[in-house]
Amino acid sequence: MKKTFENIWNFYYEGFTTMSQTGKILWFIIFVKLFIMFAILKVFFFPSELSRYDNDEQKTAAVIHNLTERVIETTPPSLNSN
């Protein structure tokens, strides 16, 4: 078992250490991109709207409120056909 893990480790280690210059640039781009996405965009610009509620009951109540209020606010009383 230990030998298997060692082989897997060596496989990845050798792969990464002998990687071409292009491969290194690509990994750099991947890490920068993931950092921007998860450490900046997700944290500062994309909070989950429903995460401010503590539990599913509150989330349900908030969504039902949104869904039921919107129809009343946006729909005029008379039906307008062509």
């Binding site: 991109k33 994309f46 709207e49």
Partner: peptide
């Protein structure tokens, strides 16, 4: 490499812009 994870942003948008 360039394309990977670009789809994750769609999931961010689901939570922020399309929560209902």
């Amino acid at each position: 490499a360039i394309g990977v994870a670009t789809g994750i942003i769609l999931e961010f948008e689901f939570g922020t812009n399309w929560s209902n």
